[in-house]
Design a protein around this nucleic acid. Structure first.
Lengths: 151, 151
DNA sequence: TCAAAAATAGAATAAAATTCTTTTTAAATT
DNA sequence: AATTTAAAAAGAATTTTATTCTATTTTTGA
């Protein structure tokens, strides 16, 4: 990982569709070294994947909610169980096990309040071992970057 | 937005590098209609962008932290000021104005605890109008999908 | 039922990715 | 400092993909 690799990663983070040719021009190199560096970055896992970023609201998902989840029991088995269960819900787009005031932070997308409530009542709250769920509704997305500040 | 469009969006969310040809084969159509539908989805904003998804840890960002931020004053001007300030920090990759127990939820990436502490002390806490900052350190990424459950 | 518009098929062209061979550069060793 | 070796890059050739164009089919609405 040298300066050139970091530049390539930054260009690809900004625009996953940028061509090898364009990267080459910007970095004053030819296509071959760029092509090989990109392949290496993919092969070695620096680049996990390429994705189309969709507009959540246009896709019909008006609601974005963060939930702080607290469990009753914290033995490994119970944690594993919860983590497995939560994977199954497509509404849950992110889930993190955190150290802090609660156990898990989950990010949820829903069509509207009704479907969110349905998720909460019929899916999340019906898991065993849930002690507390605290919802925070997103009003404004002030910043939503999938741009890592590579050091 | 019909069934075909939704299928296209789902394929592109999974793999932004999938070729028009492959989408066409999977959906039993030829390249032309797929090409035109994709362009339309881009033009109309359903697809916001294409991005390479990097491995955070490989990129040298060992720490991921969520902060619940509470402000002192809540007049529009103060909110706007905070939102503008927070944009400037590359460490802050997401920021949401939420309705709930606190005002803002921010997601932060840092190289290590030292640089996180530097961010907190010298950058975030030095903004005026901050009343309380509550950090939750991510221990495990249970689920991290940028995959929207299109209804 | 018919006309108009939209969507799709299929072929042709343009652009990009990928591969291959040669050359240059950099690093290590004598 | 000269020489060997390996890595990186250049440049050309090939393959694949995206894009455009024209013809055909399907759908929609009067």
């Amino acid at each position: 990982m040298d300066k050139i690799d970091r530049s390539i990663l930054n260009l690809l983070q900004k625009n996953g569709k940028i061509t090898i040719k364009e990267i080459a021009e910007r970095l004053n190199l030819t296509t071959t070294p760029i092509f090989e560096r990109v392949k290496k970055l993919e092969r070695e896992g620096y680049i996990k994947s390429y994705k189309a970023i969709l507009d959540r609201k246009k896709a019909g998902l008006q609601l974005m909610v963060f939930c702080n989840v607290t469990l009753n029991l914290h033995q490994t088995d119970y944690l594993k169980k919860f983590e497995k269960d939560i994977q199954q819900f497509p509404e849950v787009v992110e889930c993190y096990h955190v150290a802090g005031m609660f156990d898990y932070l989950i990010k949820i997308y829903a069509e509207d309040m009704e479907s969110y409530q349905h998720f909460l009542s019929n899916k999340l709250a019906s898991l065993e071992n849930i002690s507390k769920v605290q919802s925070s509704f997103v009003m404004t997305e002030v910043k939503d970057f999938s741009f890592l500040p590579i050091p």
